[in-house]
Amino acid sequence: MATHSTLIKPPKSLPHHSPIENVLSLLPLVDIGPDIYTNARPLWHPPGARGIYGGAAIAQCLAAAQATIPKDFTVHSMHCYFVLAGNSEIPILYHVERVRDGKSFITRTVQARQRGKCIFTTTLSFMKENSGGKQTVQHAARMPTDIPPPPALDPNQDFFPSKAGSTIDDRPFESVRVPPTRHKEPSERKLRQWLRARGRISDCPPEVREQEISEGERANKPGDNHQAHLSALAYMSDSYFIGTVARVHNLIRFASRKNIEALLRNFDGDEQERRQMQEYLETIARDEEEENKEFGHAAGQAPDSRAIGMMVSLDHAIFFHNPRAFRADEWMLTEMESPWAGDGRGLVHQRIWSKDGTLIATCVQEGCVRLQQKKESKI
């Protein structure tokens, strides 16, 4: 059976839109039914992963839900479940259900479906702007101060140099790893990185077929102004998230040449795609090897010899604390830690601050983390 990554031919990328806006753009399927959207462009399947990058489903579900709410409401939380691995060669349909419209809060659920099956589901809550009252209880975790600052670059300038045929050219965001904290216990280790969307997110919304949207609906299109930054943040929040469990345990995933060769051996793309995949894996391997040396030096031990057999996300929650007080195309600091792992699962907490120290969001993810089991010798 022939497969197509999008229902409609992807529109041309607009020069005034950042890469992440083009990646996350949606198309409304008004001929199929109300509040149904689809991905306008093919979605990324990370090398070695079972399905599409989870951040795409998170972000596009958020964008679809945002298209159905008034402009003075903003998302404050979303709770997501990964049900099935998404296929990058098949279009995704996002079905939005308008659960409740209240005076201060609005609730939406979104199901991402492929071939009639739900692959991802989320419930989102939106709050009316400035409805908390003039007097409020306030506190926030402070951003760490013992870390090197991010590169001092213009928002329109990319940190990574562009290379012809490189996967870096296509990346919608970029990150700079910060040395991890030197704690002995895995539950105490903190992994940090600076990240931001590449280019500059435009002030106008992404392309969503202007001719199919009325003037009254135009203000609520996915990605409208601050909504584009929220969708971008949701997309980036899944970067190296559940992988934190393996990283705090010094488990080798890609640093082994044998592991990379095994992934390349099973790859069925063309030669250019193969080179791109190899470059991507080797970049991750270098970061992983450096990080393992830092952890090993701090703990007085070598990297763990155990190997990951399966690692997939099960659920993902985002709590947006200051949803209108940041730009996703400016450097943000993330700090991840894993308070618990056991029974084939692991839990990771993530905090995200803007460069000026404002706590933007807190994320929580649980995933399936299974080791390769040694075969017992038969007597």
Rank of each mutant, 00 (worst) to 15 (best):
R108T: 14
D304A: 05
G165T: 09
L153V: 15
E271F: 11
G367A: 02
E261N: 03
E97N: 10
W331K: 15
T181V: 07
D343V: 09
V75H: 05
Q272E: 09
S377Y: 00
I52T: 14
E288H: 01
F173R: 01
H297L: 10
K163D: 06
D146M: 02
H139V: 02
A2R: 05
E21Q: 13
D154G: 05
Y37P: 03
A285Y: 01
M127Q: 11
L251R: 13
E289H: 00
A228E: 01
G102L: 10
Y235H: 15
Y53D: 01
P161Q: 04
D268F: 02
S18Q: 07
G133Y: 11
T68P: 02
H249T: 03
C204L: 05
R345C: 04
P179T: 13
K117T: 01
Q301L: 14
H249N: 02
E215W: 04
K378G: 03
A85Q: 10
E288A: 08
V23E: 01
R274Q: 00
C363Q: 14
M332G: 01
R192K: 10
V137T: 04
S18K: 14
I260Y: 11
P172N: 03
R370Q: 09
E291I: 12
K375I: 10
G344Y: 05
A40T: 07
F254C: 07
R327W: 08
E207W: 10
Q193D: 04
A361C: 12
L84V: 07
W353P: 14
P186T: 12
E174M: 11
S13A: 12
T38L: 00
I284P: 05
M1C: 00
G269C: 07
Y53I: 05
I8C: 06
S237P: 07
G86Q: 03
G300M: 09
N87K: 08
K190H: 02
F82H: 01
Q227N: 11
S305G: 08
T283F: 11
A112G: 04
I106D: 06
R306D: 01
V364G: 08
H16Q: 13
P323T: 12
A255D: 03
L195H: 15
M336K: 14
I352T: 15
F173C: 15
A234C: 00
I308Y: 04
L14A: 10
N259Q: 14
A328D: 10
H297Y: 00
W353V: 09
N259I: 11
D329T: 15
I260R: 09
P148Y: 15
P179F: 11
D158A: 13
Q301F: 10
A234I: 08
K163Q: 13
R306V: 08
G116F: 02
S13V: 12
E366V: 08
G54N: 02
P180T: 06
T362G: 04
A262R: 15
L347S: 04
S166W: 06
S166H: 03
S202A: 03
